[in-house]
Design a protein around this nucleic acid. Sequence first.
RNA 1: GGCAGGUUGCCCGAGUGGCCAAAGGGAGCGGACUGUAAAUCCGUCGGCUUAGCCUACGAAGGUUCGAAUCCUUCACCUGCCA
Length: 426
Amino acid sequence: MSTHILDELEWRGLIAQSTDLDALRKDLSADEPLTLYCGFDPTAPSLHAGNLVPLLTLRRFQQAGARPIMLAGGATGMIGDPRDTGERTLQTTDVVAEWAGRIRGQLERFVEFDGSSTGALIVNNLDWTGGQTVLEFLREVGKYFSVNVMLARDTVKRRLAADGMSYTEFSYLLLQSQDYLRLYREHGCRLQIGGSDQWGNIVGGVELVRRVEGASVHALTTPLVTDSEGRKFGKSTGGGNIWLDPELTSPYAWFQYFVNVTDADVGRYLRLFTFLPPEEIVELEKDVADRPQLRAGQRRLAEELTTLVHGEHQTRQVVAASQALFGRGELAELDAATLDAAMAEVPTATVRIGERPTIVDLLVETGLTDSRGAARRTVKEGGAYVNNAKVADEAWLPGEADLLHGRWLVVRRGKRNMAGVRVARD
RNA sequence: GGCAGGUUGCCCGAGUGGCCAAAGGGAGCGGACUGUAAAUCCGUCGGCUUAGCCUACGAAGGUUCGAAUCCUUCACCUGCCA
């Protein structure tokens, strides 16, 4: 007898807001599997770490015997959900279509498509809005929305108080609401989940279904994950998003992001992002509290998430690379195969020894610094290392003795930014 | 269509002719301390062939020995009026 899905979500801290949970609980225990959906708008070429929260929740529901529908927002992505910072720039339809395709491919990896009664479906809302005329939309959807109510929404209020917003973005709510209505009609979908910033949009759909179909459907949001500093989760230290696409964020960088999670956040993240059983999570939390320096929670979190997103094979590679680079042993003592494997996971550059590359060149070539000025600054500040030895002279040149296995230099900026330099003899 | 105000570096924001690569804050980055943590302290924070030069204050042009600062036109934003 396992814990009820809603109780588990509650325990994990995955429920931010919801409509009547008892009613939902009742629907979940019906004979027919409950159908639920979550939409993902193509506002970027890839999903990012933050998207994982609702996405994995969808998977949790599937494992608990519900049927998930993943919606790629090919239509809503062309309009743009209003956000506090101001009007979005419209992407061209080609770009949106390409991003929607990529995101669809990523979504598919997280749920099972086995054609059973709980087998996942994937849809694109452009399929039903693309051919719809403005008149149809205004008569069939727009008529059910009160502008008075729409104006009272927080985001709208904030935007009106600031720089205002376009009619296009103002309409976003109607489009997403219509999705829920469509999915209710076609697939009997009775639950929509999403990030807590989607609450208004989701409830819009709930209301629409009630008005048009007289049916009572459910809404549930997951919290917007922030770190203990209140910063939005999934921003790399450099400020950029960390992406699911390995071309945008390498599996090594992904792993490192989670290994570096603050003690104060590990437990919460383990609950939100992993499928580890509660007992194990509690155990890890205790371990972090007792022996923080071991970072057992962080390691486990990073391993779980890397496996989830990039697979077990990749996880083994990045764990090995991280051990080699951050381990207590000397880099010079690593055997050639281990070093080569580690170098395959971090950014690398190739230089010719004959061109006499200085430490500044190495930092720039590997991308560890953005400019030569920044590279010089790093050296001056004492943050440049080659093979774990500090390099304090801007003019430093690698010598034959520095080459690991005759071909590698391990360059580091600061404490944990590693890169490899492959040295070619001309 | 009219009138008024606005557009500054990653973000916020000061700057109304030279002392401005541009105050201040935040973020970021490096160091010390540690545990690839947090907090704290220190330093740094446009680019380059770095005692110099180049590019930059919405865009283009102009005045001037000299402009982020003055003038003209354009674009966009906000508010009020029609």
